[in-house]
Amino acid sequence: MEATGASRARTLVAVAVMVGVILFPIYWMIVTAFLPTSVVLSRTPPLLPPLGAMSLEAFHTALVRRPFLVWLSNTMLVSVGATALSLVISTLAGYSLSRYRSRVQEASGFILLFSKMLPGSLIVIPFFIMATRAGMIDNRLSLILANTSVGVPFATWMMKGFFDAIPREIDAAATIDGCTRLQALWHVVIPIAQPGLTAAAIYLFIVAWADFVFARTLINSPELWTLTTGLASFVGEHGVDWPGLMAAGALSMIPVFILFILLEPYLVSGMAAGAVK
């Protein structure tokens, strides 16, 4: 059934309205970020921003008066570290789960599946205790490890899905040509699975970027705060600096939104295939 032009136009209008409603909070965040406090703190805020009043003042505040760049670099360091570590571990494990079937594989697969249902907010208590005993409170490495514990179970199942889609004959051919199994994985299978690897990396990065519970609990010193703990620290002060907070929020979101645009086509097909579940 090919949709007619008129019905496509009607659908477009409906979708556009829906997107408008969904994105209103983001729109409002961006509008607030570009307006001075005097305009923002109004009983009758303008729904469309007065162009004349728009300024970059709030961004200036966020970047200069707040240690936004410190939070950003901490978040970046932790997210990149956790993504890289999780990706290596879960690529190897995903390949093993995809190519070999034994009790060990089955049990590990099930345990990985189960542990991705376990909540970060519960393991944070024992994690805090372990970090305290190890003297690793206020240490970005413990934050990387904590995010890895969340990432590995997810990414392993994602990678297994990608490897399942690559015929085994390809690895077999490579080993016959004289590759060791590890070489076959590295030189032959991984290049084919590269789009999947990218998707898994983006997914891991977005999850690590969003972490709040570990960052809030395992880090005390403000100079080691991440973006989420930084943003949360705006709230609860007397008279929240809303434009500054919204500016910091908008800036903090840019990287994940760009990555999401790259990841989205995969998510739609991948969720059905069972990979991200």
Binding site: M18, L23, I26, W28, T228, V235
Partner: peptide, 25 residues
Amino acid sequence: RALRCLALLPWAAPGVLVSVVFLWL
């Protein structure tokens, strides 16, 4: 493709960011 992406964007927003935006709204 573009509209689908926009409609699903909240998925990628960190929880804390969502929180502060809704506190303001």
